[in-house]
Amino acid sequence: MYLKSPKLPLLATAIWLACLHLSSAWAQPEINPEVSTPEKSVELIYQSSFQNYQRYSASTLQSWMQTNDTVKDIGGWRAYAKEITQGKDTKPTTPAHSHGGHR
Rank of each mutant, 00 (worst) to 15 (best):
S49M: 13
C19R: 06
H99C: 12
P92K: 02
S49K: 14
I74C: 04
A25I: 06
L10C: 10
P33C: 00
V35M: 04
P6D: 07
P33G: 05
A14I: 02
G75V: 00
K4L: 06
Y80L: 13
W64A: 15
L22R: 14
H102T: 07
T13E: 15
A18F: 05
E30V: 10
Y46G: 08
A12S: 05
P9W: 01
H97Q: 15
T60A: 13
T93P: 00
T93V: 04
P33Q: 04
Y53F: 04
P95C: 05
P9Q: 07
A79Y: 01
Q47W: 01
E83Y: 11
P9G: 08
H99F: 03
T94C: 09
M1R: 12
E30R: 11
P95Q: 06
T37R: 06
T60R: 14
G76Q: 00
K40W: 06
G100A: 04
Y56K: 15
S57I: 04
A96Y: 13
N52Y: 11
T37Q: 13
D89F: 01
S48W: 03
E83R: 15
N52H: 08
G87A: 09
H21W: 03
E43C: 06
S57C: 13
Q51G: 06
Y80I: 03
T13C: 08
P92V: 00
T37N: 13
K4T: 02
T85Q: 12
Y2S: 15
H99W: 07
S5Y: 00
P33M: 04
E39K: 15
Y80M: 10
S41F: 03
Q47V: 11
A25N: 15
C19M: 09
D73T: 08
S5R: 13
S41R: 13
V71C: 04
T94P: 01
S63Y: 09
A96P: 02
V71E: 04
I45M: 05
A12H: 01
S48Y: 05
A14H: 01
Q51V: 02
E43N: 15
S98H: 08
H97V: 07
E39A: 14
C19G: 10
L11A: 10
T13Q: 12
E30I: 06
T67E: 13
A18Q: 05
S63Q: 10
F50M: 02
L22I: 07
T60M: 15
A96N: 10
A81R: 10
L61I: 09
S98D: 13
Y80H: 11
P6Q: 03
C19W: 04
F50H: 08
Q51Y: 10
R55E: 08
S49D: 15
W77T: 03
Q47R: 13
L44F: 14
T90S: 03
P6I: 00
K91G: 04
L22Q: 08
G87N: 02
I45Y: 01
P33D: 08
L61P: 11
P92I: 00
K82A: 09
L17W: 09
D73A: 11
P9L: 00
S59N: 10
M65V: 07
L8F: 05
Q51I: 03
Q47C: 07
P92R: 00
S63H: 08
A25W: 15
R103S: 14
